[in-house]
Amino acid sequence: MEDNKKGKSTNRRNFLKLGLMSSVSAIAGTTILSSLTSDDETSGHSHSGEKIRLLTTDGKIVEVDAKSINNYPEAHITPEESRKGIPNKHFVMVIDLAKCKNARKCVEGCQKGHNLDPDEEFMKVHLMQDHEEGAPYWFPKGCFHCDQPPCVTVCPTGATFKREDGIVLIDNDRCIGCKFCITSCPYSARQFNWGHKDKYDDKSQPYSPETSTPGTVGTVTKCDFCPDLLRQGKLPYCASSCPMGVIYFGDKNEDIVTNGDETVRFSELIAARGGYRHLEHLGTKPNVYYLPAVNRQFPLERGFNVDEKIMDRYKDVPLIKKLKEEGKL
């Protein structure tokens, strides 16, 4: 077994450890079975339009619509129901900047899960350099799901709303597309569906604000913390796709967060590592916390190993400018 040689291979770890370490009493009442199978490469929690590849016993590779296989064991979450949220939860995300090397797996996992096009990113990885002398760092960013969300305040129809579990969702059946929420979000978390796309026509599954799919032209969309997965006791796509365990996710009430690999006390993690929230002074009270990029596991340059087009995004960062001037890039 090649996997055994690798020892710590993700696949094996998920197969063995998650059986013991994943929560059996997941909210959706899933069995050990489904908890055991949270390997993203192979499992089928993808959305409509998304195909999964299977090898049949007669030696054929078939592509099956992910939704045609029972992907949502529970009842469909209607827009009305999705306004309430998962009871007694308060979701938080902790992003460990010291571990991020711009592998972009979170972006890809999220895009796959939400059926997004290549440049559509709910989760983005920015290259930040706070000042000329400051150390640059990779900065994965989705929606902060603020406790005092300016986007929700300004919505004239209640299309975007704050749930009891802390998640800020968008009901794109309700959204009139005024885009006021986009201008009032100081974190540029929101995006607009500018034109029609064929994938919006896929009505094989009823629309739920909890999955953000299918999209609708002329409405706003954004990172949703994947409440459909949370209901199944699974991590959001970004957190489960990250090979470095950068993204921790959990319930603040429970005070426990996990990155799929290790599970820790939220409060202790924040206290020990100097966790902070981005642009705290704006008073939005985000639910995404960052652990500063100190004692890094990887040199920043490891993140340069991306597509040229992606690399081109960072051209205005002082470091990149400097490296280009010196001809090192």
Binding site: M21, G233, G250
Partner: peptide, 13 residues
């Protein structure tokens, strides 16, 4: 043996 407590997504040692 490992003793852990149950949480929403995974167990915490």
């Amino acid at each position: 043996v490992i003793i852990s407590i149950g949480a929403m997504i995974s167990k915490m040692k």
